[in-house]
Each structure stands twice: as structure tokens, then as C-alpha cells.
Design a protein around this nucleic acid. Structure first.
Lengths: 248, 248
DNA sequence: CGCATGAATTGATGCACGTCAGCGTCAGAC
DNA sequence: GTCTGACGCTGACGTGCATCAATTCATGCG
């Protein structure tokens, strides 16, 4: 279970960005992914901040978070990675990882040696373009999140996080209408939004009381009033979709 | 002054990342930059959020900021770009700019059509690698900033911003020892740090009173106690340098 | 020179957060 | 069955920061 290709040929149902979209549409890409595929259970820390790395990760299924921590124990989740996400956790010096990578669920991913990854890219310009788009989307959503981390109330950033995760999950076919299971504790959502767990709780309850959300049992969320949610988050839904959803 | 190549052959003194380092070390790259070089005075907004764009920018001299705004008038500066910085202000849909670009000083930059840019990259793998490193550094410093935007006091994020800008300026040979002229108003520094201008002022004065900084006349800063500054910012200087300084 | 403008400063006030501390619930271990 | 540890929830309390409103200061300009 720990090592080796666990799955020969990725089933179509797992296509991360939909059939015929994203790098997964390319056989070359799929072959490379399959060759370096791993599975890991939730809670297994893949890579620590500061560790050396020479690997590019491609997430096939499950949720991951990338986080950084301060010396005094505070932690910020800088991105949530969903299936189809690419993760090149390397700083400017090209050998040290700058983030901690933590699975929120059981995950299946490919850990591709940087060398092989770059060889594939240089030989396949069209895959390079697809991956460029994925990276761009990641940056775009980080920009949006920074805007709400800096300015913006607890309500607005939580509303944004929920909307963002719902939107991305929906595109991946992981949601059931307006229902979304976020596999994070309130503590983790707080680390994502720059809030304390206590305040996440209060804010969620307020959104619940106002009829915006329904929150049941461990972050099982149903958006009841999406207009109110986007309003609170300060989102223009069409613009946001264009920005953060890779459209090839 | 508004259009055309204003400078034939970039003088060595302008080499953004130092002699023999970064993409500027390549003649091919310099030729492309020269061909699309522009100058703009401070205050001239280059590109607005939401506008269409098909251009990659390379900053040759001066300071730029990238920012996003909310509907209710709040603004977050998501990055400060220094000479040698690359700017590909495009969202996932590959045609709309997601940020506003604003020069803080007179700037000189190249606006390279996306097509030409990508042609150069595909024909020059080593330039691609250099540029990759620059982009990685930009992401690394955004991660660090997000950490302090979310958790972290006003003191810590301001200390971090000053240290970051000082470090990057020093590498570019733009500082005079521990003195650094930041061409931003306190309002802009606040937009960068997620704080109000008033609180930036108070925080700077506190740092001043405690002997950490000397602040004179419009953001002319001298770091008097760099250990205290890194301590407040929660920085490990060596690790940070590795992370955010492109070392080719 | 006086005036206008835009930035930095300072004080007063209020609130949205964090922190602490306690309680309830649930799931797993045994 | 009890015990234990995570997690969610809630109330009380303190504070760091935003906001509003003056005042000062620097600069440019008629």
C-alpha cells in the first residue's frame, strides 16, 4: 500500500478535470502519472516545511492542504488542492520545500521526479499549456483569498472559502447540487481563513441562523441562499469562475 | 515618450538580477525585452483589473504593485514587483487580467506579446528555467505574506514587509546598507499589509520608539536593529533568503 | 507670500476579533 | 460498560485594530 503503482490505467471516472479537459486528456501525461502513482491515508504528512524535495506532485483524488507555520505555533493554510491540482512545493533555491503538505482525506497522487516532469513538458507543448492554466488558476484564487484575508470580515472570508470550494468541487463533479462535504475541522477552516476555531464556529452559526447555510454533522454544508453567500463574500460569480476555473 | 523602444541596448547597470544571473544574462532575452520596451511615469495605471490582456510584462526598472479591490472600495496589494520581476497578469481563462497594475515610481518595462514570449521560452529551455525560478520566488514570498496576513499582528506583518523589501532591494543593489527608500505612502503600505493607514503610522512609530527603525520623511527607512526586526516579523533570515531570492 | 493639497500624526471611541474556560457529544479502545 | 480524546459549541472578558475627526507638516503653485 505504501509504494508502487497501485492502479494500472486510471479509470475514466477519476479524470480530474472532466473528460477531454486538462492535461489528463493526454495519454503521455496519464502514463507518467500512472508510473509514479501512490496512495496515502488521511493524516499522513507527505512532506514537511523545510524538507528537501525534487518531486512534482499531481493529485489524482482526495483533498490536500498546503500550509506554513510560524515559530509561535500559528498556522496558515495557503491553499487547498483538489483532484487535478499540481504541486511543485519548491522555493527559489530549487531544492527546499516551503510548505507542509497534509492530506485531509485518503489521497491518491503521483510523485513525479522533477527531471521526468520537465522532460515531459519540454516534449509536449500542449500539456505545458494546460498545466500553465492550472497554475494560473491557483495563483488567481490565492490573490482572491489574500484580498479577503487582509481586508474583509470573518463572514466574508468564510463565505468566500465555502463558495470557492463549492465551485471547484462542482466543476470536478464532486458535489450534490448545493451540498458540499468539506473534510476539514473548524480549526482547519480557521487556519485557512486566518480565524480562530471559535470564531469560525460562531460565524458559521450566524450564517446558519440567517438562512444562508445549513451546517450539519462535521462540516457537511448545504448552501441555502447562494445569492446571500456571494453577496457576503463580495463575489461576482461569473468573474470568479473565469478567474479560478481552468478553462482550456 | 509614450511608445516605442526608448533604449537601444540595456546598460549593464540595469541588469535586474545582477551580472550573469537571471534571464538577463541571455542575449536572446535582452533582445526581446529591448524590442518591446516602454517607459511610464509614476501614477500611470498600466492595466486595470478585468481588462483583456495578451501581454507578458518584464520590469526593467522602478517599482510596481499588483492589487485587487473589493466592491466596497477596499484594496489589497498582492505583490510588489521590483526590477527583474515578471508579470503575467492573466487568470485561468487566459484573457482577462485579474489584477490592477500600478507603478509606484517611474518605470521601464517590456510588454511582450504572449505569443513572442512563449516562442522564446520554447526555444530556450535555460531561460525557461530561470524564469521558472523567478516565478517560484514570487509564489514563495506570497505564501510568507499570507501567513502573516492571516495570523500575525500589525507589527509582525509590517516588520516582515520592510524586511522583505529591504532584502530584495539589497540583492538588486538598490539599497545603501540598512537604508531603504520605500516609494509607498502609509496608505499603500497599509493596503499591502491589510491594515489601515492610521495603524501603519502608529505601528511604525512604535518600532521607531523602540529603536528598531528610523523613519524619516515619507518612508525613508533605516533599519537600526535588524535582529529585533526579524524577531518581530518571525523570520529566519537564512531560510527566507533561500525561499524568496532567485538563486540560479 | 498665502493658499491649496496630500500625507503623516495624534486622540477618542467602538467593535470584531482572540483567548480562556467550561460543557456536551460522539467514536473508538478496552 | 467506562474512559479518553477530538471536536463542536457557548459565554465572559480583554484587546488590537478600524474608524472618525482634528491638527500638523511638507510641497507646489498662483
Amino acid at each position: 500500500m505504501m509504494q508502487g503503482a497501485v492502479c494500472h490505467g486510471v479509470p475514466a471516472a477519476l479524470l480530474p478535470t472532466g473528460v477531454g479537459r486538462g492535461p489528463y486528456a493526454y495519454q503521455t501525461f496519464r502514463d507518467l502519472i500512472d508510473a509514479y502513482r501512490f496512495d496515502r491515508p488521511a493524516g499522513f504528512t507527505v512532506k514537511l516545511e523545510g524538507e528537501a524535495t525534487a518531486t512534482v506532485y499531481y493529485l489524482v483524488s482526495g483533498w490536500l492542504v498546503l500550509s506554513k507555520s510560524t515559530a509561535n505555533g500559528h498556522r496558515q493554510i495557503v491553499d487547498v488542492v483538489l483532484p487535478g491540482g499540481i504541486l511543485d512545493p519548491v522555493s527559489a533555491d530549487a531544492c527546499t520545500s516551503i510548505v507542509e503538505i497534509e492530506p485531509l482525506t485518503d489521497v491518491s497522487f503521483a510523485a513525479v521526479p522533477r527531471e521526468d516532469w520537465h522532460r515531459m513538458l519540454s516534449e509536449n507543448p500542449s500539456i505545458t499549456r494546460e498545466i500553465d492554466i492550472i497554475n494560473r488558476a491557483a495563483i488567481a484564487r490565492m490573490f482572491e483569498r489574500m484580498l479577503r484575508l487582509g481586508k474583509g470580515s470573518a463572514e466574508s472570508i468564510i463565505a468566500f472559502a465555502i463558495y470557492e470550494l463549492h465551485l471547484r468541487s462542482t466543476v470536478l463533479g464532486m458535489t450534490d447540487g448545493y451540498r458540499l462535504r468539506i473534510p476539514m475541522t473548524q480549526q482547519q477552516l480557521g487556519d485557512f481563513c486566518g480565524l480562530s476555531a471559535v470564531h469560525v464556529c460562531r460565524t458559521l452559526r450566524r450564517l446558519k441562523r440567517h438562512g444562508v447555510l445549513e451546517v450539519t454533522d462535521h462540516m457537511d454544508i448545504r448552501i441555502r441562499d447562494i445569492d446571500a453567500l456571494t453577496e457576503i463574500a463580495g463575489i461576482d460569480p461569473d468573474a470568479l469562475r473565469q478567474e479560478i476555473i481552468p478553462a482550456a
